[in-house]
Design a protein around this nucleic acid. Structure first.
Length: 559
RNA sequence: GCCCCCGUAGCUCAGAUGGAUAGAGCACUUGCCUUCUAAGCAAGUUGCCGGCCGUUCGAAUCGGCCCGGGGGCACCA
């Protein structure tokens, strides 16, 4: 909340108290009215008091308003107004609106960010796809959301690490090894069939061919180790591809956590031992169970199967204990919708280790369905029929791909239309925003050529005596109001873990700029006006740049 | 059967924390480039917010029941 908002809240609180109205511990809520006619900020206190006081809300609002008028300085709040059915509306003074420009130009790439002094370490784990094939579109959405969320949280003052959990142990790995093995022997002329659930994609054959080319027909010599050897090469090859795809997509991880190493370290047995001592695991039917029902799960869960091997949960508990031991106060995991049933048991595990339940935040990234126009594209990794993240990125470009993945709320289904994302037109919001940015750069270039304004490494620097009162038109005022809302928007995104609100915000900001641009010239005969407008559009440019950077979208100066 | 997501204009979707006359884009009709990028701007048309009941000053928003669509419910990962 900005200084103005908190000043206003305090003033209202004081007046309400002064008038002897009972407002027990309830905070004053300020909202931004949807309709501009209702001012810049509004409160509903009068309506909330109405039933207790048994008075009409509007008359309460009027009483509060007339008191507030005495205490609020007109250089901050230009107008206070009581309106039916009982809202109190506030209009910010132009001076306050103008203040935004020098603030933005001064803070530049930090505008909208928060203090780092209270930084709390957060671990964001996302993508974490099995190394059994290329990244799919679903992983792409997770990558886009996770990376952007990490940017936003960092900007909002948290210390964020991005981690990829490498699930390189277990059944899927066996299937991968066997699938490669089968293809390899087929290349040597044998007639074999893939195991049940084996991987059918052509990349498996490529890996096999690579092994054959490099090492020849030697698998009999390798004997028992043959499968391990195939697995090692398979995982390495696929993982290299995954890293490359992520890099191409512009997503970077701070750490890669290997399940294999976790299991070798003995941490899994260690954590189970710890839980045993606490009385949260027990033996039944030759299996070892975790008592997740003690923390609200529907039923207890197996951690060691009757054949002696771990379920997925056991190493996962150890993994999360490891995360916590590294000092993270908040663990945010991005999972696919197929894992939502898994949340209660992992949360139970966190609690059983003695941490508060809300230490773990699981964001379910809902399904993405690919369309090509009206045609839906079906996908399956096992069948080897799916559109990869790389293909999508190559076809529509990184910027459009990332923006499209963020255009819906995390927990809402996303229809991704390849044809739409390819279009470089109005229908494509990425270009709409980038176009605003490029136009501003072009204006700046023009002004610079005309010798108007001061520039520091191409960066426009307004004259200290710039008079912002030149900015009077509705289009300019609208821009100023939207610019002011950027820090709040970032806050909302970080609190709700939703980059999506930023995509909406940037579209609104770009729109307000395009409207202005069409109506008015920035560089005019009037030097004072030109200065003020150059400063205004420079502020827009900075905020668009900051916003797009948080989304992982580039800001081309020319289009 | 249980759990998660969704149902708002012809289409794709916004409407954080309950608020004022429910909004955009697309599509359709029509204007706007000798002037800093027309990838743009402006104007017009579009609604049983899936249904019923409840909570309250006030419900698209919260609760209950129902209908419809998608996904998930392992000693798989």
């Amino acid at each position: 909340m900005s200084v103005i908002e908190s000043t206003l809240t305090n003033a209202i609180q004081k007046v309400v108290k002064q008038l002897g109205f009972p407002l027990e511990g309830e905070e004053i809520i300020l909202e931004i009215p949807r309709d501009e006619q209702h001012g810049d900020l509004a409160t509903n206190v009068a309506m909330r008091l109405a039933s207790q006081l048994k008075q009409p809300p509007l008359s309460i609002a009027q009483k509060i308003t007339s008191e507030l008028e005495k205490s609020l300085h007109p250089s901050v709040i230009a107008r206070v107004e009581a309106k039916a059915p009982g809202f109190i509306n506030f209009s910010l003074s132009p001076q306050i609106l103008y203040q935004a420009i020098p603030v933005i130009l001064h803070e530049k790439e930090r505008y909208g960010s928060s203090d780092f002094s209270k930084a709390e370490p957060v671990l964001l784990e996302f993508v974490s796809a099995n190394p059994t094939g290329a990244l799919s579109v679903a992983h792409g959405r997770q990558a886009a959301v996770g990376d952007s969320l990490a940017n936003i949280l960092e900007f909002a003052g948290f210390k964020v690490s991005r981690e990829y959990y490498l699930n390189n142990v277990g059944n899927q790995m066996n299937l991968l090894a066997q699938s490669i093995f089968v293809r390899y022997r087929e290349l040597l002329g044998e007639k074999l069939s893939l195991p049940e659930g084996g991987y059918k994609g052509s990349y498996i054959g490529d890996i096999a061919r690579g092994i054959l080319t490099r090492e020849g027909d030697r698998w009999r010599e390798w004997n028992e180790q043959a499968k391990d050897h195939f697995l090692k090469i398979g995982v390495e090859t696929i993982l290299t591809g995954i890293r490359k795809d992520l890099e191409f997509f512009g997503v970077h991880f701070d750490s890669w956590f290997s399940q294999e190493e976790l299991e070798k370290s003995g941490d899994v047995q260690g954590v189970l031992q710890q839980l045993k001592e606490k009385g949260f695991v027990y033996e039944q039917d030759k299996a070892l169970w975790f008592k997740s029902t003690a923390f609200g799960d529907d039923k207890d869960r197996v951690v060691i199967k009757s054949d002696g091997s771990f379920t997925y949960l056991a190493p996962d508990i150890a993994y999360h204990r490891d995360k916590l031991s590294r000092g993270y106060k908040k663990l945010i995991n991005l999972w696919g919708p197929d894992h939502h049933g898994y949340i209660p048991r992992l949360r139970a595990a966190i609690q059983s280790l003695g941490y508060p339940a809300d230490t773990l935040v699981v964001l379910i990234v809902q399904l993405t369905t690919l369309y090509e126009g009206k045609r839906q594209l079906k996908m399956s990794t096992r069948e080897g029929e799916f559109v990869t993240l790389l293909e999508v990125t190559e076809v529509v470009g990184r910027d459009a791909a990332r923006f499209f993945f963020l255009m819906r709320k995390v927990d809402a289904h996303l229809d991704f239309d390849l044809e739409l994302a390819k279009l470089q037109t109005v229908e494509n919001p990425v270009y709409y925003i980038q176009y605003a940015y490029a136009r501003i750069c072009s204006i700046r270039e023009f002004a610079q050529k005309e010798g108007i304004g001061q520039y520091d490494q191409d960066q426009f620097t307004p004259h200290p005596q710039t008079n912002f009162e030149y900015l009077q038109t509705p289009e300019e005022v609208k821009i100023l109001k939207i610019l002011r809302q950027f820090p709040t928007t970032v806050q909302i995104c970080s609190q709700l873990y939703e980059p999506f609100y930023l995509t909406l915000y940037l579209q609104r900001l770009a729109e307000s700029f395009h409207q202005f641009y069409h109506q008015h010239r920035v560089v005019t005969e009037d030097a004072g006006l030109s200065q003020a407008r150059l400063a205004l559009v420079e502020a827009v440019r900075i905020v668009i740049a900051n916003g797009l950077k948080l989304l992982g979208v580039s800001t081309p100066e020319k289009m």
